[in-house]
Amino acid sequence: MKHKLTFLFFCLTLSFGMAQNKKDYSNGVPITKGTWFSSLSLSANSRTGENDRQLFATYIEQQRNGFNLRVDPGYVIKDNLGIGIGLLYGSRKDESIQQSSDGVISNVNSAERKFEIRPYVKNFIPLGESNRFYIVIPTELQIGFGNGIQETTTDGVLTREFTDGIYYGLGMRPGMLVFIRENFGFEVNVGALGISRTIITSEATGLPDSKVNSGDLSLKINLLELSLGFSIYL
């Protein structure tokens, strides 16, 4: 997380400094009414652990990988104000060997995938007069669907659990847009200031079905939702 924070701070500082000290109008793009744009962004995470002691279990071995891929077409309805709809696909896979507090060892494998639709309004705040550097503040409605499976093997007994989830909420993803060539930009965003509700239903081998309805309010920047992408403005 420290590396992500350092990288984000470096990008913001470098971009702001260039906006103030270098005026190159040739590659700038004014965000004016009638402009079409689209961006493609990727966020990924991974975790490898050995003998990681948690509250209720020790992860003897763990390997986790996940990613989110997102496309955001949109249209500028007013100078420096755009609307659009984001489409996101995410996947996560987790394999681990766990030892419970009473010494029982289990192999746990899980996989999840999700799809989200995110209509949004995006504000562009230019830095300097070159039209190359912008602070961007997207505010979006988030509607998502997902499912997953978890297999747990303990003493040769396999237990499967299937889950289905529905997610909806409202959030902001502030960031920075830098045009590196004419009509072609680089964008970095982080998750922040969100409110959401999640409904998860589960079916497990030999156990009654369950349903969990939970809400969440976040008033902080979430660097775990750091995403990097490229944008085209025409």
Results as ranks from 00 to 15, higher is better:
P30Q: 06
L217K: 02
N65T: 14
G215T: 06
L217V: 07
G90W: 01
Y75W: 14
L42N: 04
L228E: 03
L42W: 07
N222G: 00
Y59S: 12
E112S: 12
V178G: 01
L223P: 12
I135C: 05
P30E: 08
S46V: 05
G191P: 03
D164E: 09
P208D: 12
K122M: 14
Y233C: 05
M1G: 11
N183L: 06
F162W: 08
R173F: 01
L224C: 00
T6E: 10
V190E: 00
D72M: 11
R47V: 04
K2T: 12
Q142M: 03
I135E: 03
K220R: 15
L5C: 03
P138R: 02
G128C: 14
L141T: 02
K4H: 07
S202Q: 03
G229S: 08
N183D: 09
E140V: 00
P174G: 06
Q63T: 09
S101R: 10
V104Y: 09
R47W: 05
N109A: 13
N27G: 10
Y134S: 02
E112W: 06
F230V: 12
P73N: 05
V29S: 09
I221D: 00
D94A: 11
A19E: 14
S218R: 11
D72Y: 06
A111G: 15
I125A: 10
M1T: 04
Y168G: 01
G194D: 06
I149Q: 10
N45S: 13
A19C: 15
Q20F: 14
D155V: 07
T35H: 04
G191E: 00
S110H: 03
F230E: 07
V29E: 09
E161W: 02
G34Q: 05
R173V: 00
D52W: 14
L177V: 04
G28M: 08
S39W: 04
T32A: 11
F67V: 08
I83R: 06
L88M: 14
T198P: 00
A19G: 15
L234E: 13
L226Q: 06
L5N: 06
W36G: 05
M176Q: 12
A192G: 00
G185H: 08
D24V: 07
I232N: 07
S39Y: 04
M172L: 10
I166K: 12
Y134M: 02
G148Q: 09
F37N: 11
S39C: 05
Y59R: 11
G128D: 13
M1A: 08
W36A: 09
P174L: 05
F230C: 11
L81Q: 11
I221S: 01
E116H: 05
V188R: 01
